[in-house]
Structure formats: structure tokens, C-alpha cells
Design a protein around this nucleic acid. Sequence first.
DNA 1: TGTCGGTCATGACATCTGTCATGGCAATTT
DNA 2: AAATTGCCATGACAGATGTCATGACCGACA
Lengths: 211, 211
Amino acid sequence: MSGAEARDAGPIRVLLADDQALVRGALAALLNLEPDIEVVAQTGDGTNVVALAEEHRVDVALLDIQMPLMDGLVAAGQLRSRLPECKVLMVTTFDRPGYLRAAFEAGASGFLVKDTPSSELAAAVRRVHVGGRVVDPSLAAQSLMHGANPLTEREREVLSRAQSGAPVAQIAASLHLSAGTVRNHLSSAIGKTGEANRIAAAHLAREQGWI
Amino acid sequence: MSGAEARDAGPIRVLLADDQALVRGALAALLNLEPDIEVVAQTGDGTNVVALAEEHRVDVALLDIQMPLMDGLVAAGQLRSRLPECKVLMVTTFDRPGYLRAAFEAGASGFLVKDTPSSELAAAVRRVHVGGRVVDPSLAAQSLMHGANPLTEREREVLSRAQSGAPVAQIAASLHLSAGTVRNHLSSAIGKTGEANRIAAAHLAREQGWI
DNA sequence: TGTCGGTCATGACATCTGTCATGGCAATTT
DNA sequence: AAATTGCCATGACAGATGTCATGACCGACA
């Protein structure tokens, strides 16, 4: 009980990271309605999460996964290694099972999708603050069904670049590989996903949170 | 002046429509901080916007474009024809110039993207309430540059189905066309977008709000 | 030590894709 | 009435894509 009580002096100090300013401001308004919660820092990208968390002695960081420059998952990893006392609650738009797994591997204490009722947000913040875990129930079931990411590092890289319609030659050049190798990786990824071509494979991989 | 003054008795009555409950609740919290604004109704899809607006005598409807079941644009059109007194302020995640055009064609009085500062939301609501227009400045410039959608109906249909990786044969079957015709439409769309293949063309078309 | 998985590469093959020329049909515009 | 535009279709061609067999290198693991 000593660990939790050391932080009981004031309200829970929260950092908000979300790339959409309007949503970020609105979430701050929502959390500031709670007497025991105070939003002490906000940012639109992941690169300065650690610095802000240190500076403002943050208890709980609310991180969106989708952010420019630096991904919320990467930011979560840095935060956990540099400020182990600071808990991480991930929030995301998309209910992709792969994200949940990735979030916990990055050291997050909780995971919410953005269509959770807003009344539950404050409770989730309090729960992770005292050392508990929060898992979005709609995702928990799915997550247990789906296994881990079947794609290798290279397959993910190649598939990511294929998403936007880049031809094999371009992908090969950007990765310093031969065209044949790229086609092999693509073929392998297509096989693993059970789809018919690179585009459908990339879609499935994105839905699953594999890329 | 009589029309506007008839509504001056109480606070501005706002309806919120956004498919993400967390964001919806947060926006409500943000707007309810303003003494002259009151969120009187919320919904997660477009189908009951008109009914709710009638029931709660809504002054301003804040509609997200991306919603399941019924698109915010369609809801805006219905609202304007059934309740002309109720102003519409569209909010969207994506800064696609085509959306801005579509929004004003649907009768919206304002258009904001979700990365505008949250402090401007209340001002935008007040502005449309008194009959003004609100246009996101970052989009206004783009919108004037880009002309209307250059794609024909068929090209849009074909390109939409090509997005997810469906092969020509499947697209042809689903539209009851010959494979050759589908390839012609795709080729034409690729030419108009200036891209190298169907995937890149579909990406551009989505960014522009053409499909 | 041997085996296995991931990476990289080549060559060959069948199939898919993008382009072009050409033509017919209907609706609209001039 | 003639021209234009969108839509549908066919056939032919070059190039891109997906598959497969094969081989090499490396690190991990039993």
C-alpha cells in the first residue's frame, strides 16, 4: 500500500497525447470535470511525451496510438523505461486486436477504444493510477482468438510500402533489395494472410494491427 | 432581425453526432463549459439526427461526416430540408477538399477539421448560430485550387471496389460488366489522377474526397 | 553438429494489369 | 443535324505481378 499512498497528496496528474487538437482539448475538458484528476500537459505528437511527463511529474499518460512523427506505442515504450512510475493508458480509434497485444508489450497498463462511453474514462484513469489494468472488453475476447503477428519484419516492411500502390521496383530501391526478393516477401505475406494479392493482404494486415 | 432574436431567450441548444462515444462525450463536456451553450442531445449515428433535432428544439447540429448507417452529409441534407432554422456545423477527421464542397452542397453553414484548436469550437458554434459561415482556413485555400471531381460515376464505382484489392474479374462480376470495360474505366481513372496504378489512383481519389 | 527459420537472390512461367485502337449506343449540347 | 460526352465492349500488346524451384548465408537452438 505504500507505493500508492506516496501519490495521494494531490489530484492525479494526467498527460494527454492525441494528434487531433479538438479531441485533445475536449478530453481535457472531460477529465478536468473530475475533482481528483488534473490534466497538466498536452501534446500533439509522441516525440515530447517523455520530456513533458518528466517536467510535469505526470502520474498517468493517456496516449493515442495514431500520431504523427512518433507512434503512441513507441512513446509508451520510452515512457516505461525512463519513468517506470508513470502509468500508460492507450487510447485508439481502431479496434485491431494486434494493437492490444502491442500496447501491453510496450508496457501499457490499459487499453481503450474511442467508442467506450465517456463516463468510463475517468474510472479507467483511476484504475491504472493505483496499479490496476484496464482492457476494453470488446477487444479482450477478440484478442484471445487471434494469435500473434505471423508476418516477419521484412514482410511487414514490404507490405507497408505496397499499401499505397508503389510498384515492386520502387519498394526494392527504397529497401536496397532486388526486385525478385521483394516479390518473394510479398508472395509469402500473401500466402500467410490467405489473400489473393498484395493489396488485399495489406488490408487484412492493417485490420489485424500487424503492420 | 426577428428570426435570430426569437432564439435569444436561453442558451444555444446543440446536438452532437459522432460515432465515437468517448469523443462525443468529451465534446459535450467542452461545450457545456460555455455558459451560453448547452448540449441537449447526442447520437452515434445519422439516422435519428432529424428526430432528435425536432424533439429537443436544436439550434445548431454538430455532425461528424464519418458515421455508420447514415453519413453526416446525408443527415445534413435531411436536417436542412426538414428544419431550415437549425444550422449545421460539419466536423471531420480528414482534410479532404471534396468534403468541404460536398458539405456546403448539403446545406452546412460551417466546416471544421478535428485538428482545429479546441478553443475555437465554441466560437464556431456561436458564429453559425447567428447565421454566419465557418470555413476551416487550411481547407479554404486548398478547396479553391482543386476543381470538382473529375471522375465519372462509373470510374468512382470501379475505383472504390478496386481499393480493397479486388481483381478485375470480381469487380466486373459485381457490376455486371465485362472485364475489358472495367479495365478501361480503371485506365481512365488512372490517367485522370495522374497516378501509375489503380491503388495509387484510389488513394489520391480518397484524399481528394472524390470517392 | 545438424536442423530450422529468416533473409537474399536468380530464373522461369502463367496470369493480371494498364494501354491503345476501334466501334457502337444513348443523352446532351451546339 | 452534327458534335460531344459518357458508357459499354472487343482484341492485342507490353509490362507488372504472383508462384515456384533452387541455392546461399546467417543465427538460434537442440
